[in-house]
């Protein structure tokens, strides 16, 4: 009953948000269009989080790392190579994928909450590096005055916020469409199977770590491409764009959208980021307090959102208040050293 209501609410909200995103550039002012473009880029990072968290079963708090790598690659390298948006997106995706590939040995052997922990550490370390590597990243001051891009060879440079928003929208739509198509193929089925029962899939001769590596690199590439879009939308980047807060907000958005749903992740992440931006506008100084309260409230309102999306529970067994903590054997590390 409750699930049914939740599903309908999600579908209705998703339809509304997507329709809003389409008509937005003709309705809102320049400033809002710029904010919306940034929100879309973050929504695309949310899609990569959903790909890892919901589809592959590796909950991540570190997708800001490839996102940052893509953004800085796009701003530092991409602008020297070419001012064509497609090229910059490709450079950024390559940078994100490379970072994801480098961190593979840290992430892929781990499962469950350990992934959460390691990815969080990776994300924070990347932000630290960005803040200190002044010669390339400009340190905590960030990089400003990034040149505008032209979407494709022969097209004019994107000069207005509306144009930049539409460019972001088209790229996001293309990439999300590609992810959705990819998940319909055998690759998507194998990833979901590995999430649901890794041992069984391994026993039937599949190399689950290989699939997980593929998913991790792909998610890195998507997040990297989103970084390039952020550069276009904002024309300014600093380490503050890639903080731990952003990762947690994206994870919250993905959970609200239903972890395994790619479209839901896009809408959920966009909603959460929009709420954050709105809160910081109307409540300067107290926004984190309200935001934290919203986190807690959301967790209580969606108490089963996560588990249901990750593994179907046939019968909700009545749980006496004092039973032992039923540990997720496959998600819990062995604690001996």
């Amino acid at each position: 009953m409750r699930d049914e209501v939740l599903r309908r609410v999600r579908a209705a909200v998703a339809t509304l948000v997507l329709a809003g995103l389409l008509v937005a550039p003709w309705v809102v002012d320049d400033y809002t269009a710029a904010i919306l473009a940034r929100t879309l880029a973050l929504g695309l990072v949310g899609v990569s989080v959903a790909l890892l968290t919901g589809v592959a079963g590796m909950p991540t708090l570190g997708q800001t790392a490839p996102y940052a790598a893509g953004a800085y690659a796009s701003a530092v390298l991409g602008s020297q190579v070419s001012d064509v948006g497609v090229v910059q997106v490709a450079v950024a995706a390559l940078a994100g994928a490379t970072l994801a590939a480098v961190t593979l040995p840290l992430v892929v052997p781990a499962r469950g909450v350990i992934v959460l922990m390691i990815t969080l550490a990776i994300g924070e370390l990347v932000v630290t590096v960005l803040g200190r590597w002044r010669s390339v990243t400009g340190g905590t001051d960030g990089l400003a005055g990034i040149a505008g891009v032209r979407p494709f060879w022969g097209l004019p440079v994107l000069a207005t916020d509306q144009a930049r928003y539409l460019y972001t929208l088209v790229v996001v739509a293309t990439l999300v469409g590609a992810v959705l198509l990819l998940l319909r193929t055998r690759a998507g089925v194998l990833l979901r199977a590995g999430r649901d029962d890794e041992m069984r899939l391994r026993a039937s001769g599949h190399r689950v770590p290989l699939y997980l590596s593929g998913a991790h690199v792909a998610a890195g590439a998507i997040a990297g491409a989103a970084g390039s879009l952020l550069v276009v939308a904002q024309q300014y980047i600093s380490p503050a764009d890639f903080g731990f807060d952003t990762s947690a907000l994206l994870l919250l958005g993905v959970v609200i959208g239903g972890t395994a749903s790619v479209g839901g992740a896009l809408v959920g992440a966009a909603l959460v980021i929009a709420v954050r931006d709105w809160l910081f506008g109307v409540l300067p100084g107290h926004a984190p307090l309200v935001l934290g309260a919203l986190f807690v409230a959301t967790v209580y309102l969606l108490p089963t959102g996560v588990t249901r999306a990750r593994r179907p529970r046939p019968v909700p067994a009545p749980r006496p208040p004092d039973v032992a903590p039923t540990r997720d054997r496959d998600a819990t590390p062995e604690l001996r050293v």
Binding site: T53, G292, F295, V299, P303
Partner: peptide, 14 residues
């Protein structure tokens, strides 16, 4: 763990 992480992060933020 996902829910726990989100909840404790909310508490940390507030």
């Amino acid at each position: 763990h996902l829910t726990q992480a989100l909840l404790t992060f909310g508490v940390a933020l507030a």
